[in-house]
Design a protein around this nucleic acid. Structure first.
Length: 736
DNA sequence: TGAGGGATGGGACCA
DNA sequence: CCATCCCTCA
């Protein structure tokens, strides 16, 4: 079968596995997506399952799109009947189709993280919560973390007054969401889990329908997502929870890589992989270890590094390709020098004929991009920074969406508050306070309370209400794109930004919203024509709003330009480049300072480094700076332990004889040991930046000093031993 | 209402 | 250093 051509033995085994649960440990660059998509195509083309019997889950819209595209390239049929999407997208689909059973209004709105934050803030205020003890962000985190563990407020155990209060907020939050008809991201998951778990008929329907469930990036799933999968797969323990009957379970095909688990901070639970193996008695664990991306030295570095982690399922990447170039390492004197070197090296790679889009500069934290951008800009190298503001998160777009939400549902207090005085129309805090008092007293939404406060209609508030009413009236029967157009004009948003000095971009973004709406409507129409199921959103406006919340809009068409790619290591996951620069490899930065306080924190940082390394195909550069400007002051650091964990024989140390201020005649290729540490004004015979040795902590660098004479204390960075304050009088420090 | 000053805090991310 | 938040004042 041509479908199976060019698969290696393990890939072939995975693709053609019998109808059983399976765990595929897919190393970086091992053809994971190919296995996943070919498996689906194989199942369908062998008649094993119909397209409607396939459920494929990913984490990002991009991954879902790619999967759908690749499957339709392999099969003569359309992918329409298949459920391919993100967890949230699929849950949204489920809840829209069964909103009544799920206890939701038909046009429920989705809150993104920003909306949720504002919502919590508003809630805390209305409950007179102590602002100093309860920060909105903290309460938001508490709610999300619990939802992601599958716990409602009633399921959370409170140990003290503080946590009891948090639980109260959680309960009040859920009630308020229900009243306003809004749903946050975690709620999409939890609500659809509860829907299936409580509704036996529905559960059996979907369990019977989805014969094959395939999950991408399984190591990133959180506990709730795993339970959701278990429930849909008809796993016994989840069915007992749900008091359901017996039915044959569907096959769960999970693909993941524990070594690339880097999202614990957002709830991912690597343990799901081991749990899956146990819970489902998985007999088929297949390792994909042949790597088709990177050259030998790069893989040697990755393997050696990750071997330092203790809790692993275990994997070793190998390649048929040669060793390739050594990995080049630079010890720069400063972050500026590091950046200048990157620029220089990118130039030189360009001269060798490498396209800039094939090169990436990676860093641990976003703040590092500034220096790099400065150097690249000075050098005239086109670059693109990933991970800025996304389209649907922009201020003006959020305002526009809030107007649309009000058209769909005027009871939406969050949307109401966002735009009631935007553009400014003289509705101040005083008026809004009266309004919210009235609403609370009457137990209604703000919108319903307007007549109580606005009185006879001469007020600004009454005028706002009339504006919304008028818009609702005139857009009722219009196609989506025209609704948007009317809203932009009628709300005054367009005029407001046109009058603003620097409003041109915003006007452009707003006008783009009309195009986005038109494109969405067109796609929905095409989909609706072919779809056999009546579960699409009944209302195009609601559908568009859900789309805006679920797909924050990374479709930047500006990818045409050949630009160097700048991004955090996190956002590089899943991507690959011919040449990769991993910068800022300093103790305290990468691994990050914070990580030492978390258990498993260091191992997660190491996995992050593993991800960074494995992005590179043929050229890998590592760099660190001895001094770095952080939070407005110079920090002195030592090289990251991760550099030391890479075998010396694959490394090639570089150093520059830097002729200040220009870097033109730098001989970067001169082999050299680490450069001398810079010395600066210091105290008490020691200098800031000086290397010292401590009998217990070993080698360190003096970072700062305070006090004088017998009181003097030095702050020393001992690398993996951490940052220490030492009393000069007692500490047995010797210059190194 | 909105501009401007002063305090504060600063990890990564997708839906 | 920088962005963000809250408060004050015109």
């Amino acid at each position: 079968m041509p479908l199976l051509d060019n698969l290696n033995a393990e890939q072939l085994a995975a693709v053609t596995l019998p109808d059983q649960h399976a765990l595929i440990l897919a190393g970086a660059g091992s053809g994971k997506t190919r296995v996943l998509t070919t498996r689906i195509a194989w199942l369908i083309s062998t008649g094993n399952v119909s397209p409607a019997g396939v459920l494929a889950v990913t984490f990002t819209n991009k991954a879902a799109r790619e999967m759908a595209t690749r499957i339709s390239a392999m099969l003569p049929i359309s992918t329409r009947g298949m459920w391919i999407g993100t967890f949230h997208g699929l849950c949204n689909r489920l809840l829209r189709a069964h909103y009544r059973d799920a206890g939701l209004p038909q046009l429920f709105q989705i809150l993104d993280a920003q909306d949720q934050h504002a919502f919590v803030k508003r809630l805390l205020k209305s409950l007179n919560a102590d602002e100093n003890r309860f920060a909105p962000a903290q309460v938001q985190y508490f709610i999300n973390a619990n939802k992601e563990e599958g716990r409602r407020a009633g399921d959370v155990e409170a140990f003290d007054d503080f946590s009891r209060r948090l639980v109260e907020f959680y309960a009040a939050y859920d009630e308020q969401c229900q009243r306003e008809g809004v749903v946050d991201f975690a709620e999409l998951l939890l609500r659809s889990y509860e829907l299936l778990s409580r509704n036996e008929l529905l559960r059996e329907h979907y369990q019977g329908r989805f014969r094959h469930i395939l999950v991408d990036e399984f190591q990133d799933t959180n506990r709730l997502q795993y339970r959701w999968l278990k429930l849909l797969a008809g796993h016994r323990s989840e069915r007992r929870d749900a008091a359901g009957g017996e039915s044959a379970s569907s096959c769960l095909f999970a693909v993941g890589d524990d070594d690339q688990s880097i999202y614990r901070f957002r709830g991912a639970n690597v343990g799901n992989m081991a749990d899956f193996e146990r819970d489902f008695r998985v007999e088929n664990v297949i390792r994909l270890e042949q790597n088709y991306r990177s050259q030998g030295n790069i893989l040697a570095a990755a393997n050696a590094l990750i071997a330092n982690n203790r809790r692993r399922l275990g994997k070793n990447l190998w390649t048929q390709a040669g060793k390739g170039e050594p990995i080049r390492v630079l010890s720069a004197r400063s972050d500026a020098e590091e950046a200048a070197w990157v620029a220089e090296e990118v130039r030189s790679l360009g001269r060798e004929g490498l396209a800039r889009r094939e090169m990436a500069v990676l860093y641990r934290s976003n703040a590092q991009s500034r220096v790099l951008e400065h150097a690249l800009f000075s050098a005239g190298i086109p670059y693109r920074v990933y991970g800025g503001q996304r389209y649907f998160e922009r201020l003006e777009i959020k305002h526009a969406l809030a107007y649309l939400r009000l058209l769909a549902n005027p009871e939406d207090d969050g949307a109401f508050l966002r735009v009631v005085n935007f553009p400014p129309r003289g509705i101040g805090a005083r008026t809004l306070e009266q309004l919210s008092d009235a609403a609370r007293a009457a137990g209604t939404s703000l919108w319903q309370a307007v007549p109580r406060v606005a009185g006879k209609g001469g007020s600004a508030l009454a005028a706002f209400a009339r504006t919304i009413e008028a818009l609702r009236g005139e857009t009722r029967e219009l196609p989506l794109a025209e609704v948007v157009e009317h809203m932009l004009a009628g709300s005054g948003l367009l005029d407001h930004f046109r009058a603003e000095r620097d409003g041109a971009d915003r006007v452009e973004n707003l006008e783009e919203l009309t195009n986005a709406a038109a494109a969405f409507a067109q796609e929905a129409a095409a989909e609706g024509a072919g779809a056999a199921e009546p579960d699409g959103p009944p209302d195009p406006l609601a559908g568009f709003l859900a789309h805006a919340a679920l797909e924050s809009g990374e479709h930047q068409a500006a990818e045409g330009a050949d630009a160097l790619q700048l991004m955090t290591v996190h956002s590089a996951k899943g991507l690959e480049f011919a040449a990769v620069f991993v910068t800022g490899l300093e103790e305290g930065l990468f691994p990050h300072e914070q990580s030492r306080k978390e258990d498993d924190g260091l191992e997660e940082e190491r996995r992050l480094m593993y991800v960074a390394i494995t992005r590179a195909r043929s050229r890998l550069y590592l760099s660190f700076a001895q001094t770095r400007l952080l939070h407005g002051q110079t920090r002195y650091s030592v090289a990251s332990r991760f550099v030391e964990e890479i075998p010396g024989e694959v490394l090639k140390w570089l150093a520059g004889r830097v002729s200040r201020p220009q870097f033109e005649d730098v001989a970067w290729e001169t082999p050299a040991k680490k450069m001398p540490v810079p010395r600066e004004i210091g105290a008490m015979g020691y200098r800031i930046g000086q290397s010292v040795t401590h009998p217990k902590f070993g080698q360190g660098v003096i970072v700062s000093a305070e006090g004088s004479g017998a009181e003097a204390r030095l702050q020393v960075n001992f690398g993996r031993q951490g940052m220490k304050w030492l009393a000069l009088e007692y500490a047995k420090l010797t210059p190194a």
